[in-house]
Nucleic acid binder design. Structure first.
Lengths: 198, 198
DNA sequence: ACCATACCGAACATGGTGTTCATCATTATA
DNA sequence: TATAATGATGAACACCATGTTCGGTATGGT
């Protein structure tokens, strides 16, 4: 659909996307105006509207790219080191690796800077992956399947945000380990100090 | 600080708060303009700016009220049914009860409708409560204390959102039970269908 | 070299913002 | 009940971002 070929158009779109990222990191999505974007990207006003209907459209468009990249990374990881592929929540490692490579982009999305739109889109993309990873999960009466999906996505975002904002020194593997521990076993072990397991 | 006494001022502030809530539920926080608010509340433009510096200020102000109410509900629950007070995460029950009573307000805050500001403020308030509840949690090398706090708050918001938006029929006690299960034990039991515990 | 097309930039109407001010209404209090 | 204080009103204002249009310019594909 709508194959873009002309170099000029590609140049413009890349400039707009990267301008938006810079501005989100600098002053947040909500506070960023289209005027800011076209100034930062050095692009004419009418040119912007020739490509996108507004800043929300521009942002959403970026997520299509992210989704593609993440899917590819997923596939690569799956075919690469086989063995760890059918672990529960085995998809997360590739995501943390990807986030390490594009830390600035993820940082722009996460933690409020990207506004409701960014978090919403990110949740949507991650939910797809999580659902794919929990195909046969039984819906035990206690906790519904969809709640489990939301819980896992929420935990993923919590660890991701905490990692990028407060412990950027950790390796993707370390962040992933914390995510798996919390998502699979909860925080009980870190909370119950005096009471026993039973 | 700044004791408000005059009935007229109270009337105006209440009208503005309730107008904002209605509008958030109807069209979302971002899309709501100050013009909308003063129209809905039937209040003069200059009157609005006499009380608040903008819509963000109005929203933030509402959270001070929420925090007070929640703290009171907390205290009441603690003195009322003693015995369950020192359970791990024992604060959550009172919160779910409170949310049931003010479902429309919570619904306006949660799930994106309230914008980044609302979620941020809600996180801040809830974080305070969670930190108070985990005073002596040991910082085992695996997962840092602050990450645990963020994880618990995130899980709280996940369950809260899911409850209000998709299962409004459940009782506060049922929602609370799901929260405790996920926060303390994780989703491992709901995910691992074929593999054993070891 | 040609032509399609992407970009430019200025101009425009529209609508929200935040402020000021003179006037009117309501309140607390004597 | 009279009065002084304070809050509410609504119109007017300059300012800025939005989204659209259009004639002219450049760069790209072939």
């Amino acid at each position: 659909m709508a194959e873009v070929i002309d170099r000029r158009a590609l140049r413009t779109r890349k400039a707009l996307h990267s301008a938006l990222m810079s501005l989100i990191l600098r002053k947040g999505y909500e506070a960023t105006t289209i005027q800011d974007i076209i100034d930062e990207a050095d692009v004419g006003r009418s040119t912007f509207y020739g490509h996108y209907t507004g800043k929300e459209d521009l942002l959403r468009n970026g997520f299509q790219i992210l989704r593609r990249e993440l899917t590819d990374a997923q596939r690569a990881a799956r075919t690469g080191t086989d063995g760890a592929q059918d672990e529960p929540l085995g998809f997360s490692r590739a995501m943390f690796e990807h986030a390490a490579g594009y830390a600035d982009v993820y940082l722009a999305m996460v933690g409020g800077r990207g506004g409701v739109v960014a978090i919403g889109e990110l949740r949507k993309v991650l939910s797809e992956f999580v659902r794919k990873e929990l195909p046969a999960a039984r819906d035990d009466g206690a906790v519904s399947r969809e709640l489990v999906v939301q819980f896992v996505v929420g935990t993923l975002l919590t660890v991701l945000t905490w990692w990028l904002e407060r412990r950027p020194g950790l390796t993707p593997a370390q962040a992933d380990a914390m995510f798996r521990r919390l998502a699979l076993n909860g925080a009980g072990a870190s909370i119950r100090t005096r009471s026993r397991v039973g």
